[in-house]
Write a protein that binds this DNA or RNA. Sequence first.
DNA 1: ATTAATTCTATAAAATTAGTAGAGTTTAAA
DNA 2: TTTAAACTCTACTAATTTTATAGAATTAAT
Lengths: 137, 137
Amino acid sequence: MLSHKAKYALKALLYLAQQEETHVSRTIEIAEAATIPKKFLEQILLDLKRGHFVGSKQGKFGGYYLLKSKNDITLADIHRLFDGAIALLPCASLNFYERCSDCADESECLLRHGLITIREETLKAMEGITIASLVKK
Amino acid sequence: MLSHKAKYALKALLYLAQQEETHVSRTIEIAEAATIPKKFLEQILLDLKRGHFVGSKQGKFGGYYLLKSKNDITLADIHRLFDGAIALLPCASLNFYERCSDCADESECLLRHGLITIREETLKAMEGITIASLVKK
DNA sequence: ATTAATTCTATAAAATTAGTAGAGTTTAAA
DNA sequence: TTTAAACTCTACTAATTTTATAGAATTAAT
């Protein structure tokens, strides 16, 4: 399941994707349009900025705008940024790999093989969902 | 990601699937073989029993055994039993459906459509992974 | 200088997860 | 019928994560 943070991030990105390219959106404007607690959204937008998905303009008349093309922001990206690994266990993850402490010999683990298959399939599906594809409904 | 409970459940089921059909396995035996805290495993086996995946024999010389065929226990089943919905948000779930409180009109939600697609694809993948397929490596 | 915005750090309440404790019940066998 | 060995059940606890909130600092336009 997605965390609220990831869900809010996606909703904020969808909002930004629907604005004119030149428009910068204030946090409060996004928060009200997408029903997201404003102070929580502040953090989320900063995370998105650090992930180089959005840019910001500071000071009066400042706000946020999409930095990457809406075609290049995928569900997999946002999942990884806010909720971490796509894989079902760390030992089956590419970007968040970690050994299981309860596993004597990883190469012998019956579970891992199946979970790698799952990761490959869900990753492909999640990379197919972009902000652009969501906006197009 | 899978919870430890779900991971332990899968490891326990894999252990049971590798025993002879007539054999009943004691909790302590499974715990030691699969490196699972015994008292934690007790709870997990009871959950698996209530889900009709395993059966038990009480009293001295009692223990657990597979109730369902290893071909009929899927990763999706175990995910649902221990970790709930397969879908990324409750509003996109079949078995754990819930409305989002921050969503004014669900039929208008741009996110939901994409998440239903993802759910369909990952569900298909997860239903393809059975205890039998994992044992066969 | 003032206003309106982002940025940053700290804090807090609630929920979830992971695991432990201990008493109760059931069954086989001596 | 007693004992041993197993499952069953309920409650509890500690740690972690999640979901925020608060407030001061910084930036930029007018």
